[in-house]
Structures are given as C-alpha cells and as structure tokens.
Design a protein around this nucleic acid. Structure first.
Lengths: 237, 237
DNA sequence: TATCTCAGTGCACACGCGTCAACTGCAGAA
DNA sequence: TTCTGCAGTTGACGCGTGTGCACTGAGATA
C-alpha cells in the first residue's frame, strides 16, 4: 500500500501529496457550503481554508465550477455505494421501506456535507451543477423504476407509470434528506418517522392504481371522473 | 385611483415614486435570480439594474437580506391569493386534483420569478430566508391538513397523520413547481401530467391507510410486518 | 411665500476578488 | 549525479464590492 516501484519511500509520494491537496480543496468547499451557497463561495476562500495560495488552485481545477462538478462525482460516488448496500440488504427484510429509511438516515449522518450539497445545489444558481445533480438523480429514479418491476403489481404497470412512481419516491426521499441535513440529532427520528409514513402511504396506493388515458390534461377533454370510486370519497356535503 | 387629498396631482406623489423605486429593486432582484442564487447577487448589481445609485438602496432596505425577506412576503402574497381562488373553485369540480394542478401551472406561468425564488431559496445559503420560506410552506401544509378533514376518510385519521399527508402533497407540488420554473413551455404539460398522476397515486392510498404504533422506528422493536397485507406484494422470488 | 423632508447623487475609502508572470524547491526520471 | 517536471509561492494588476459623508433638488407643509 506504500511502496512505489522498488522502495525507499519515506513520507509521501508526489501523487499522494497532490491528491491530499485536491481532497483538502474539496472538503474545505464542503465545509464552507454548510453556511453559504456554492455560487457565493470564492476561490480564495477555498484556498485560504485549504492552506494553499490562490494560484495553486489551478493545479487541480480549472475554476470553481470544475471543482463543483468534481464534488458532484464524489457525493454520488458514496451515494451509489450506499444504494448498492441497501439493495442487497433488501431481500433479508420484509419491511423494505423501514430498512431503506434507516439506511438513508445513517448515510446522512455519515456524509452530511455531501448530502447537503446535493439537496441544495440541485436548485442552486449554477446551471451545470444543477443539471449534473438532476441527471444523477434521474439515473437513480430510472434504476429504481426497473427495480420495482420485481413486484408483480408494478410489473403490470406501464413503463411511464413506473417511472412516475419511482420519481415520486426519489423526490420524497431527497426532500427529506434536505431537511435531515439541517436537523439537530433529536429531530432526526421524527423526520425519519414521517418520511417512512409518507413512503408507506405512496406504496399502499399501488394495488388500487389504474392508469388513465394520457391526453386529457389540457382541460378540454370532457372526462372528469374524480378518483374513479377507488380513491377518496367526496366531501361530507 | 390618482387623486391624493384635494387635487392638482400632475405626475406622481412622493410616496408613489418611492414605492415605484422599491418595486424596481424587488423586480430587478427577481430578474437577476433567474441566473444566480440570491446570496451571490450584489447590492450594486441590483441598484445598477434598477437605475439608481448604490447608496439610495438604503432608503428602502437595510441590506440585501432585508430585501430578500420582502421578496418572501411578496411571493407568498400572490401565492395566497392563488390558493384562495383554488379553494373556492374546488367545490364546482369533482376532480380536485386535476383542477388544482391546472391552477398551479397557470400560476407558475404568470409568476415564474416568484415561484423560482421560493423553490430555490428554500434550500438557499441564507438562513433567515430559508426559515421564512419554510415557515410559510409549513403554514400552507397546516391549513391543508385542516382542510382535508372535510373528507370522511381523512376525518378518521389522527391529526399527525393528516399533517404528514398534507406535507407530502405540498412537498410534491413544490418540487414540481421547481421543475416547472425551468421548463420550456412545451415541457410543462408533461410535468403537469406527471405531478397529477403522483398526487392521484398518493390520494388513492388514503382509504387503505392504517396508522401504526409510533415508537418502532429505532429498529430495535421486533415488529416488522411489511405493508400489512394491504399494500404491495412481495417480490416474485 | 419660505421652510423642511427625504429620495437620490457623487465621491471616496479600504478591501476582496480572479488571474497573470516569474519564481522556488524538491521528487522522480535519466 | 545531473536534469526535468510540476506543486506551490510571491507580488502585482485592474476591477467590483459595501458603506460613510456631504450634497442637491423637488414635493410636502405651514
């Protein structure tokens, strides 16, 4: 793990040192992000926090936007690991939802800064960052949409409906993650409880789902049957 | 609409002129917000865009944060009007969801900048702004939670469960609003269609809902019954 | 009419910013 | 052992920033 080529290695190789500085830049930025939006963080602030001079920054990144994209990679890297774990665990628990929520909460605890970065900059001021984050989240939703086909109920759905279902789940979780990253420790379990309920409510609607004709959104079509008698009742009066 | 006190009013009163400048500051900021996060917009930029000198800014606001809070008021002002309209319309349509989505889409079209401001700065870098926006959204959710008690099914729920239900609806809509504000006109109807489906899926789960004991989140409790046989089936194998 | 109020101006200040060109010193290749 | 590549430094640049102070001029008041 330490010898490069033959040996004599004493402290650190050149590559290692560079990697260490790069990492310092990333994690300094992450730290600053707990108080400020990415766009309002300056290159100089980051280097100051990392203990290097401003100009040395360019040995690692083209500019702040480039660093931001690297941050997206990093954050989603650990996230993917998490999801892989969650998925393999899944089969051993019959309450998929509860277990998943626990895993998410644990992940937020361990990677709070990464998760905050994702939850925030998804709506942030820098286009390319927003796009990159959204794309990754869409990717998750797509995988999930395929994944849930394992359930017979959902296998009967159209692909589009499964997509919309997965999208709802992902969006709900990401919103909750956003709150979690700002919550104090003792608020976490309350948020966790609520998101678990919300997911459960969504899932519970699955067997009753019946897709509708697609073209009737514009409001011109006459079809206006409410929830088709399977859903909620009409107001008391 | 024009005479102040007796008459002679020619062009504009002092108050009117001041109000006009104030509004210019707000709407300039709103315009700048389409490309940048609030925190990264400078006071000078705003005044430049409004056609006044930087120092005149302070005749209207203490600083940018103060202006931001005024923007929250403004944005939620029009939003409240919208919701009031939506609520009164409700009784005449039996598809509440479809109608509500239409109203939201229309509102986003007409107040795109306000809605983008809300959707973005809800996760933005300035604490007080985030807090103010969240508080207003919570208020909406609370009202909605009370409102849905009109439906017999939901009247039987616990208050906490209605709250979590309203919260899910609000969160889902706000997320969609965030996407809508960035969508091109021809993408709008697709987003609208999806959010309508998502709301419908959530609502369709309502009759099947049964609340659970609250204390079992920590994962120690032995209760691990999945969806109580009412929800989704187990994986195929 | 004369006087007061106050939204907006002009100028100046100290400071933080991103980036440039020239450099230093050391790890690794020859 | 010498040479080279490159992470990091130094110092300077022109520019944008928030804010303080003294001001102006027109609308409101008396």
């Amino acid at each position: 793990m330490s010898s490069r080529r033959h040996d004599h290695s004493d402290s650190e190789s050149r590559r290692e040192r560079k990697e260490r500085t790069r990492h310092a830049l990333l994690s300094s930025t992450l730290r600053l992000l707990s108080k400020h939006s990415f766009e309002s963080i300056s290159l100089r602030e980051v280097t100051r926090e990392s203990g290097i001079t401003p100009t040395a920054f360019y040995r690692h990144f083209d500019g702040m936007e480039d660093l931001g994209l690297a941050l997206v990679d990093e954050a989603f890297g650990t996230l993917h690991d998490m999801v892989r774990t969650a998925r393999s665990d899944t089969s051993t628990y019959d309450d998929v939802i509860r277990r998943s929520v626990q895993i998410v909460v644990a992940h937020v605890r361990e990677h709070r800064d990464h998760m905050r970065f994702i939850a925030r900059e998804r709506y942030g001021g820098i286009r390319r960052l927003r796009r990159a984050i959204r794309m990754e989240l869409e990717l998750f939703a797509n995988e999930l949409a395929v994944d849930v086909s394992r359930f017979p109920e959902l296998a009967r759905w159209t692909r589009a409906d499964r997509q919309m279902f997965a999208d709802l789940l992902v969006e709900t979780v990401v919103s909750a993650v956003g709150r979690l990253t700002e919550a104090r420790r003792e608020e976490e379990s309350e948020i966790a409880r609520r998101i678990e309920k919300q997911l459960r409510l969504v899932v519970i609607g699955v067997p009753a789902w019946r897709s509708r004709p697609e073209e009737s959104i514009s409001g011109i079509s006459g079809d206006s049957v409410s929830t088709e008698g399977r859903g909620i009742e009409s107001p008391a009066k």
